[in-house]
Amino acid sequence: MFLKIFIITRLLAQSIWAAQTVLRFGCSQIVVERLDPLVNPGTNHSPHVHQVTGGNAFSASVASSDVFKIANCTTCSFSEDLSNYWNANLYFKARNGTYKRVPQVPNRGLTGEVGGMTVYYTSPYDGSKVTAFKPGFQMLAGHAEQRVPGGVTQWNAICFRCYNAKNFGGENQAPCSDKTVDSVSLSTKACPGGICTNIRFPTCWDGVNWDSADHLSHVSYPASKASEDNGPCPSTHPVKLPQLMFEVIWDTTSFNDKSLWPTDGSQPFVFSMGDNTGYGQHGDYIFGWKDNVLQKAMEVGCFGASCSALKTQSFSDANKCAVPDEVKEPIDGWISTLPGMSM
């Protein structure tokens, strides 16, 4: 009897797992500069530097609808994903007060990207349906001005992991969920294998607005539980969305020489908006998938970087996609100040 129950339980678990969609794919950098068409539309320059990935429609101003009709290439491995994903950059501040941008590297198991990030779209563990984003959908995760605990950290939406070895992720971990190794702030010690940042976006939508004035109010995190627990949506935002997550691997290994660190022993890394705590890490998203392909992909139980419902491209092709630099200023090499910042 026990064996029969065990077999039934395993079959049910497998059927639920098979019903869950986990798209996990790489996107190379398309540009690194001070532009932000969500928070500072039409402004050249925005206040701080971002790393941008995805479609080549990215500019100081981006259309509020049908981005995929404007872009004609993408740096993502799914060629029908012309969305834009971007996040603040990490810099190292040396003891002499100069800064150098920390490079970003591909996640383990994903090869060919130039900088960039790993992007995830996942459905709930129980296999329940989600409503994919639509043309014109835009949103933020996190708050650039945050410098203390609170805000989205209550949903484990922003976290860091200090790697002990240079393997750069892909360890079948559940980012932000392991409190013994994950933190909502930057590590105060040197990380031998680099630092991983995870940025989770809201999973609930009001069902009406593709965007809002603050790019936050039309969406919500679950009414209860952390982001990874797929908690129920609040009544104000009843429509369940795919869980969108960025995973960014910062190669800090060349900056681990303690002779370069501050003499007071504090950690030397600072985000491009002048944040040395990590609480201000944030992500931006403009939907740009072609037609209805994302909805189809979320319904067929795809897993990883291949999906029968989607077209893929090699990174030799993806990395040819580019946009011209609109902001002409030094952002790499040793620089005296953070671009756009006085510190």
Rank of each mutant, 00 (worst) to 15 (best):
F2Q: 08
K4D: 14
I7L: 12
I8M: 12
T9K: 02
L11G: 00
I16Q: 07
A19Q: 15
T21D: 10
G26A: 12
L35V: 09
D36M: 11
H48G: 01
V49A: 07
V52P: 00
I70E: 13
I70D: 00
A71C: 10
T74P: 01
S79K: 15
A94M: 10
R95P: 02
G97E: 10
G97S: 07
P103S: 10
G112S: 08
G115K: 04
T118S: 07
G127D: 13
T131L: 09
T131I: 12
A132H: 04
F133K: 06
Q138R: 15
Q138V: 15
A141Y: 00
A141D: 08
H143A: 13
A144Q: 08
A157C: 10
A157N: 07
R161E: 03
N164R: 13
N167H: 13
E171L: 12
P175I: 00
V181W: 00
D182G: 03
S185K: 14
S187T: 14
C191I: 07
C191A: 07
C191F: 06
C196M: 14
N198K: 11
W205V: 05
W205C: 01
N209F: 04
P222D: 11
S224F: 10
P238K: 12
V239K: 06
V248P: 05
V248C: 01
I249C: 01
T253S: 05
T253A: 02
S254M: 14
S254E: 15
K258F: 04
T263S: 15
F269A: 03
D275V: 04
T277N: 09
G278I: 00
H282I: 09
D284I: 08
Q295H: 09
K296E: 13
M298D: 07
C302W: 11
S306H: 09
S306A: 10
C307G: 05
C307W: 02
C307K: 04
Q313F: 05
C321N: 05
V327M: 04
D332C: 02
S336C: 06
S336E: 14
L338E: 06
S342P: 02
